[in-house]
Structure formats: structure tokens, C-alpha cells
Computed example of a mutant assay.
Amino acid sequence: MNIKTLLLSGTIATSLLLGACNNMDDKKDDMKEEAKSETKKEHRDMTDTKGMQEGMFKGENKEKVEGKAMIKDNKLMLKDFSSSKGPDLHVYLTKDGDIKKGKKIDKIDYDKAEQTFDLKGIHVKDYNTVTIYCDKAHVTFGSATLK
């Protein structure tokens, strides 16, 4: 009788344990789906893919910067672009041209008319200006206000 009770108890305990594990897997799947949904929402919020922003470059500090800056489909595009030659030119997204609080995007070619940069993971709505900045000389060459 003792063995029968022990076997019955073991069987019930095993059934309960396996049932609980199965329920935990369902919860994990639900949590994974929620996490995926949140990640998609965050990514959608981080980049403004609905509208296009653009602006025309203006030179600053006696430097020449010309052309158009466009943000569309998570990409920053420089069109008809040219700039004064600089030793270390980079493109930044800034708020009103403030480099210290801006987001460095990438190095640019001062004489390449068409350039495209990926903005994946950047919250574009935080910025309103595309700025060309020489990191070595600490000089803003020009900027384009986005509209």
C-alpha cells in the first residue's frame, strides 16, 4: 500500500510540474510577442518615416557649403552637395546647429554631389538642422534647416 501511494503521489506531482512548465512556456511566448511588438513600436517612434524633411545648405564662418539635405525613409541624403575642403568633415544632426548636443552621422566627401547616410535607430524628430562640421578645426562649415 505504501508503494502504491508513493507511485500515485509521484505521478500527480509529475503531472502538476509538467503542466506548470507548459503554462510557463505559454507565458514566455506571450512575453516574447509583447517584446517584439514594443521593439517595433520603439523603432517606429525613433525614426520619422512618414514625412520628408528637407532644407538648403548655407555656408558659415567664411566657408562654402551648398546643396540640399533631405531626410526620407530613415536616410539622410545630400543632393547637389559641395563644400569647402576640410581635413575632417562630418555631417551631424543638430538642434539649431548645436554640435555639442548633436548626433554625429558620418564622415563626408566635400566634393561628392550625392551622398546617403543611414539614420536607423536615430530619433530624427529631436533634430531640426543638418550641420557640416570640421572635427579637427572645430568649425561649422554650414548647415541646412529642415522643414
Results as ranks from 00 to 15, higher is better:
residue 1 M to S: 13
residue 3 I to V: 08
residue 3 I to W: 06
residue 5 T to H: 12
residue 5 T to P: 01
residue 5 T to D: 12
residue 6 L to A: 11
residue 8 L to Q: 11
residue 8 L to Y: 12
residue 10 G to Q: 08
residue 10 G to I: 10
residue 12 I to D: 05
residue 12 I to P: 02
residue 13 A to D: 10
residue 14 T to R: 01
residue 16 L to A: 14
residue 18 L to R: 03
residue 19 G to W: 15
residue 20 A to Q: 08
residue 20 A to D: 09
residue 21 C to Q: 12
residue 23 N to S: 12
residue 23 N to I: 10
residue 23 N to E: 12
residue 24 M to I: 09
residue 24 M to P: 00
residue 26 D to E: 15
residue 29 D to H: 15
residue 30 D to F: 12
residue 32 K to C: 06
residue 32 K to P: 01
residue 34 E to P: 02
residue 34 E to A: 10
residue 35 A to M: 13
residue 36 K to M: 07
residue 36 K to S: 13
residue 37 S to R: 09
residue 37 S to V: 00
residue 40 K to T: 08
residue 42 E to P: 00
residue 43 H to S: 10
residue 46 M to V: 04
residue 47 T to G: 02
residue 47 T to P: 06
residue 48 D to Y: 15
residue 50 K to D: 13
residue 55 G to T: 08
residue 56 M to R: 10
residue 57 F to S: 04
residue 58 K to D: 04
residue 62 K to E: 14
residue 63 E to Y: 09
residue 63 E to I: 00
residue 64 K to T: 11
residue 65 V to E: 04
residue 67 G to N: 13
residue 67 G to A: 07
residue 68 K to S: 06
residue 68 K to Y: 00
residue 68 K to N: 12
residue 69 A to V: 07
residue 71 I to Q: 02
residue 72 K to C: 06
residue 73 D to E: 14
residue 75 K to A: 05
residue 75 K to G: 01
residue 76 L to D: 01
residue 76 L to H: 03
residue 78 L to A: 05
residue 78 L to M: 10
residue 78 L to D: 00
residue 79 K to C: 01
residue 81 F to H: 04
residue 82 S to L: 13
residue 82 S to I: 06
residue 85 K to M: 09
residue 90 H to L: 06
residue 91 V to Q: 09
residue 92 Y to R: 03
residue 93 L to A: 01
residue 93 L to D: 04
residue 94 T to I: 06
residue 95 K to Y: 11
residue 95 K to L: 09
residue 95 K to F: 08
residue 95 K to H: 12
residue 98 D to T: 15
residue 103 K to F: 14
residue 104 K to P: 03
residue 104 K to L: 05
residue 104 K to Q: 10
residue 105 I to C: 02
residue 106 D to I: 00
residue 106 D to V: 02
residue 108 I to P: 00
residue 108 I to A: 01
residue 108 I to V: 03
residue 110 Y to C: 07
residue 111 D to L: 08
residue 112 K to F: 03
residue 112 K to N: 05
residue 114 E to Y: 11
residue 115 Q to V: 02
residue 115 Q to I: 00
residue 115 Q to R: 10
residue 117 F to Q: 06
residue 119 L to W: 09
residue 120 K to Y: 15
residue 122 I to V: 14
residue 122 I to W: 10
residue 122 I to A: 04
residue 123 H to R: 06
residue 123 H to W: 14
residue 124 V to F: 13
residue 126 D to V: 04
residue 126 D to M: 04
residue 127 Y to H: 04
residue 128 N to D: 15
residue 132 I to M: 04
residue 132 I to A: 02
residue 133 Y to L: 01
residue 134 C to K: 01
residue 135 D to T: 03
residue 135 D to G: 05
residue 136 K to V: 04
residue 142 G to V: 03
residue 143 S to Y: 09
residue 144 A to R: 02
residue 146 L to S: 01
residue 146 L to W: 07
